[in-house]
Simulated assay, not measured.
Amino acid sequence: MSEEKLVLENVSKSFGEGENAVVVLNDLSLRVKAGELVAIVGPSGSGKSTFLCIAGALLSPSSGRVIIDGDEINKMSPGQMNSIRLKKIGFIFQSANLIPYLTVRDQLLLVTELEGNRNKEAKKRADDLLEKLGLAHRKHHYPESLSGGERQRVAIARAWMNNPEIIFADEPTASLDSERGRAVVQMLADEVKLRGKSAVMVTHDQRMLDLCDRVVWMEDGKLVESNSVQV
């Protein structure tokens, strides 16, 4: 597949103004094709989290272009960007960010409710995702009764719930043991290939890099090396 799901062209991001401005991203470019899982690695403070926020339409760049599934998001209104996030993007954060008063199954169904859709098909998709991640027996439980690893797996299932074109994952294996973490990244890799989606994963977990199609090194706000990065 050659269709590009994510394009960043000469993206820079600064916080503050004038002499006090802090440059976090510096003329960064990246293209991610359909069917591709890309890992972003690099030291703390290199700009990885800011990169994810801009690529995922949570922040606007100071300069440059960001295109998600053909839509140039830096020309959009906040409402349009919110629609893109809801319909085309799935997020997996390092902390699960689950809603404490919703059951596991309802965490997933909330995503479809925001799109005005809670039908039998949505419920089946939620149940299928929970089954795939080994959580079917926990679907009526609340977050407080789950382990850290279980909460993270719920967050991963929730990210896939709206059938997004691209998944952004920030340290998705941080609270998982090696076996479960590898299973989660394998699921990401399998899903993007099977469905022609894309995924970008920020990670420090070197054990997962062999499952990725590309590994890109970030340092000082720049992507300085790609393809076969040794870390």
Rank of each mutant, 00 (worst) to 15 (best):
E4Q: 15
V7Y: 11
T112G: 08
G56Y: 13
A189F: 06
S198G: 15
V22T: 13
R125H: 09
I166Y: 06
A122T: 10
A169Y: 06
E179P: 01
K222R: 15
L28S: 10
L188K: 03
S2N: 15
E225W: 04
N10W: 02
S62I: 07
K5F: 15
E225R: 11
S49E: 02
V111S: 11
E191A: 08
Q94E: 00
E179G: 08
V184Y: 02
S49L: 01
G221I: 00
G16W: 08
G148E: 07
A174P: 05
N97W: 03
A155D: 10
R151S: 10
M218C: 01
V66Q: 05
P43K: 07
D71L: 15
L188H: 00
D27K: 07
C53D: 12
G79C: 12
A183R: 05
V23S: 10
A57Y: 12
D71I: 15
V215A: 14
R195P: 07
N117A: 10
Q186H: 13
L146K: 03
Q206G: 00
K139D: 04
N97I: 04
D71Y: 13
S228C: 13
P143S: 09
A55R: 04
H140E: 13
R125Q: 13
K75E: 12
E121H: 09
V215G: 11
M76V: 10
V224K: 13
V200M: 09
L98T: 00
R31T: 11
L25N: 12
D213H: 00
G90V: 02
R214H: 08
S178Q: 14
S178K: 12
I92C: 01
R182S: 07
S44I: 06
V216W: 01
F91T: 03
S2H: 15
K193V: 14
Q94R: 01
Q107F: 07
K13C: 05
R118Q: 10
S29Q: 12
P61S: 02
N162G: 05
E131D: 14
R182V: 08
T50G: 01
F91V: 04
